[in-house]
Design a protein around this nucleic acid. Structure first.
Length: 364
DNA sequence: TGGCATGATTCAAA
DNA sequence: TTTGAATCATGCCA
């Protein structure tokens, strides 16, 4: 059986100086050498380049290539339009990363990483408030934070500089290479710009990675600082007294309004969130073990009753803290009955309702 | 050092 | 969004 005719396998380009030969064969030979030049080692390529530059057909080949390029200009124009459209589309697709880059830039700027290091104190730490924290602890944490941030900033700028330097060097190298190639083939300025743009695009991607990892480092640092803020610190005696007084004088409905919370926070020198936390904990712990809190309850109700007698009939809490001999029993009854109803959102403007429920609880 | 007290956090329910 | 409940984490004291 006859084997089917197959196209002859492509022979690798001969790596030898072009001998004197007919024009067509000579041209294709030179072209093949150009094509193969990237496969060769640097020394070999250098020698090949020199041979090509000195080749007697070089100027003829160059003009032919220019002619071909000129003829295909129309085609290339449409190709350029296509590339332009593709590039626009690509840029549109890259919008999210660009937005991300913008966010990264903003964050680095906000954290003081993008800026050169400030000499003054509290450059970045000034932006982090620490409500309810201890000044000594936070200042230690902040100095630690600043030191770590400074390290991150140094690393970031050093790496950024390295990348920029590498980008410049590589761009110069590629530009020189293209200039070199322009002696053999026509290289338009647009091609050069395109190549430089590509290089810059690659290095921008690397820079984005750098910014991202820097942001992550800053976030980790911040979260560690936040963990440090989590440290528990007992409230001052005054704060505890203010809260307890309110709690036991409003035992029927220990749900202070937002305004009351603010007032209690101000009086105790703590934050509104801390007041909310305290009441949340107090309610649940009181309910769980009423007996344990009886002594405390008696103490505070007596205290507030004394204060009421001294102050007379004025004051917000005084009108709601009329102590009765049966406070202990009342507390336990209230705890197990009215709080369940009281968990429903309270009407913001019903102080009378508070005392009313208190009285009704007592009477019940 | 262990146990208790207590402020903070988390999560589900209303 | 607030609250209850559970849980964590830390301070304090015997």
């Amino acid at each position: 059986m006859a084997a089917p005719l197959r196209p002859a396998p492509q022979q690798p380009a001969p790596r030898r100086p072009a001998p004197a030969a007919p024009l067509g064969r000579d041209t294709s030979d030179v072209l093949q050498q150009i094509m193969a030049i990237t496969d060769q080692s640097l020394d070999e390529a250098q020698a090949r380049k020199h041979a090509l530059n000195c080749h007697r057909m070089k100027s003829a080949l160059f003009s032919v290539l220019c002619e071909i390029k000129g003829k295909t200009e129309n085609t290339s124009q449409s190709a350029c339009l296509f590339h332009l459209a593709m590039s626009i589309q690509q840029h549109q697709e890259e919008d999210p990363p660009d937005a991300q880059l913008l966010r990264l830039d903003n964050m680095l700027l906000a954290e003081g990483v993008s800026r050169p290091e400030k000499r003054g104190r509290g450059a970045a730490a000034g932006t982090t408030a620490t409500p309810g924290g201890c000044p000594n602890d936070t200042s230690i944490a902040h100095s630690d934070y600043r030191a770590k941030l400074s390290q991150i900033r140094q690393i970031y700028h050093s790496e950024l500089e390295k990348y920029e330097q590498a980008c410049r060097e590589f761009t110069t190298h590629v530009t020189n290479l293209l200039r070199e190639q322009s002696r053999v083939r026509p290289v338009s300025s647009r091609e050069m710009e395109h190549m430089v743009g590509m290089i810059h695009g690659k290095f921008t991607a690397i820079q984005r990675q750098l910014k991202q990892s820097t942001c992550e480092a800053v976030m980790t640092l911040r979260s560690r600082l936040l963990d440090a803020r989590r440290k528990r610190r007992n409230f001052s005696k005054q704060a505890t007294e203010v809260l307890n007084e309110y709690f036991y004088s409003h035992l029927s409905n220990p749900y202070p309004s937002e305004e009351t919370k603010e007032e209690l926070a101000r009086k105790g020198g703590i934050t509104v969130s801390q007041v909310s936390n305290w009441f949340g904990n107090k309610r649940i712990r009181y309910k769980k073990n009423t007996g344990k809190f009886q002594e405390e309850a008696t103490m505070y109700t007596e205290k507030t009753s004394t204060a009421t007698k001294v102050r007379g009939s004025g004051g917000q809490s005084s009108c709601q803290s009329t102590p009765s001999p049966g406070d202990k029993a009342m507390a336990s009854i209230i705890t197990h009955s009215s709080w369940q109803r009281a968990t429903a959102p309270q009407p913001p403007s019903s102080p009378a309702g508070d005392s009313g429920s208190f009285n009704s609880d007592v009477s019940n």
